[in-house]
Amino acid sequence: MKRVLHYVLLSLVALVMLSPLLWMLATSLESPDALLHFPPRLLPASPRFSNYGTVVRELSIGTYFFNSIKISVIGTFGEVMAAALAAFAFARMEFRGKRVLFAVLLSTMMIPFQVTMIPVYVIMRYLGWLDSLASLIVPHFFGGAFASGAFGVFLLRQFFESVPKELEDASRIDGASRFRFFSTILLPLSKPALMVLSLFVFMGIWNDLLSPVLFLSSEDKMPLPFGLAVLQNAQHTFRYDLLMAGTLISIVPIVLLYIFLQRYVTNSFLQAGLKG
């Protein structure tokens, strides 16, 4: 009996968590007239899959999508690499100012974007990167424009420290350089940590609204969140069926990626809990 109650409760909460997403799906398949109908129909009478074609053809969702892919894939690669290099130094090398530097790096996580936003905007202007995708991609090779690199350094350092030191000594005795050990042994060994970090960084860039609205102005360069926000703000002249179709398109890749990698995610949370 208690078990049944537990499942009932689990399912009810699942329904609450899912219903906004299901409602998005239902709306995205509606015809525009049906949306003005009250009471709303929970299921579309005849699903209009053509809405998806319409948003790609008429609302540049396709363009936003490819901008998002470009920024997120290259940006994630850059940010994870920058974090891995720094984490390697912090985990395996001794150098002057190590502790202070690590503390400073971690403390940058406390600095809100509201403080740095305007100077960063000015820097982008001087670099001539305003309204170009460079402003959204290049900073990630240096840890990100809004101090997101620290989290990755912290996460990877933890992981690198858990790899036995003997492994490095052995490969060095065999004549491998330090960088060779890093790139051909340490990184492949760190796949779980790199996966989790990549997922979180990718998610951060894919979902980011701030940097695009700060740096971009042309519609053809916008990534999905910016494009969708613009459409939403124009919604009085607009249709929720199409807006929901576009929103759904923006969510699908990240949800798939999460489901695909979710066992890494759960483990990383549980491990962090055991350590901290």
Binding site: P20, Q232, Q235, L243
Partner: peptide, 12 residues
């Protein structure tokens, strides 16, 4: 889910 997507869905 992105905060923008969530905000759009909930506005609806």
């Amino acid at each position: 889910t992105s905060i923008v997507a969530a905000a759009i869905i909930w506005s609806w």
